[in-house]
Amino acid sequence: MARTIATICARGGSKGLPGKNLRPLAGKPLIVHTIEQALAARGIEGVFVSTDDPAIAEVARGAGAKVPYLRPAELATDEAPKLPAIEHLVSRLESEGLAVDTVVDLQPTSPLRAPRDIEAALALLGDADLVVSVTEPSHNPYYTMAEADAQGWLRLSKPGSVARRQDAPAVWGLNGSIYVWRRSALPRAIAQGFWSVLAKPYAMPRSLSLDIDDLEDFELAEWLLQRSRSAGAAHGR
């Protein structure tokens, strides 16, 4: 029987914030937040970490994830895209007898999602190739987002007759938190590009969409988690 698995890709190197995947956030290593969310999400039948770093592998196993091997160096450079690393991991699992139908890839630098977000995104897949988590951006290309032309003059990115923000078409920004892939779509996305597949959005609020890249992001995530816990305690949760 084919299974739904979660993958978490976590390199040891990071230029923006060295060692961020193991950096303590609200009392536990950053990557552990995502592992625990995946383990708690209904419908996930296995949580697998792809990493090139033995220290990350040790922490991940201690948190309950499986790390079947250390990722090859050529898939762990700053320039290496993530999809081939996911495909490499899934193919390895399949070669060992695991039948995979759905791959839920979770970014370890997005620790503010909840297990219910993973479950809701998974439930949306239907006949799509991909469900990707998104959030409403602070700027809309039909109304406030501009780019410079060849002469350096600012022009609206998507010019038209929109006069009010409320009249602008809804747009989404990928927040990087959740990607629910139909297994069969992964090779096509690698060969033809991310946007070659049929994708549906799973909308998340901005407050849960933080992607940690540097120290400022990390400190903001710490504050947001503390605020969430304080609010939960105040309501007796």
Rank of each mutant, 00 (worst) to 15 (best):
G62Q: 15
G62N: 15
G62V: 00
G62T: 06
G62L: 08
G62S: 10
G62F: 14
G62M: 00
A63S: 14
A63F: 12
A63Y: 02
A63H: 13
A63W: 11
A63P: 06
A63G: 13
G64P: 05
G64K: 10
G64F: 04
A65P: 12
A65T: 09
A65M: 13
K66D: 14
K66H: 15
K66A: 15
K66F: 15
K66M: 15
V67Y: 08
V67W: 11
P68R: 00
P68G: 04
P68S: 13
P68A: 08
Y69H: 03
Y69K: 13
Y69G: 00
Y69V: 02
L70V: 04
R71F: 05
R71M: 13
R71Y: 02
P72G: 06
P72M: 08
P72T: 06
P72E: 04
P72W: 03
A73Y: 06
A73D: 06
A73M: 07
E74T: 13
E74V: 05
L75P: 14
L75A: 08
L75E: 07
L75V: 12
L75Y: 09
L75N: 07
A76Q: 10
A76K: 10
T77S: 14
T77I: 05
T77M: 07
T77A: 05
T77W: 04
D78I: 06
D78L: 04
D78T: 00
D78V: 07
D78H: 14
D78S: 14
E79P: 00
E79I: 03
E79Y: 14
A80C: 11
A80Q: 03
A80I: 13
P81E: 01
P81G: 08
P81C: 06
P81T: 04
K82G: 01
K82F: 02
K82N: 04
K82V: 10
K82I: 00
K82L: 13
K82S: 03
L83H: 03
L83C: 01
L83G: 02
L83Q: 01
L83P: 03
P84V: 01
P84N: 02
P84S: 06
P84W: 02
P84G: 03
A85G: 15
A85T: 08
A85Q: 11
A85M: 10
I86S: 00
I86W: 02
E87P: 01
E87W: 09
E87Q: 05
H88Y: 15
H88D: 11
H88T: 08
H88C: 05
H88A: 11
H88W: 14
H88S: 04
H88N: 02
L89G: 04
L89P: 00
L89F: 07
L89S: 05
V90G: 09
V90E: 06
V90P: 04
S91V: 07
R92V: 00
R92T: 05
L93H: 11
L93A: 12
E94W: 07
E94M: 15
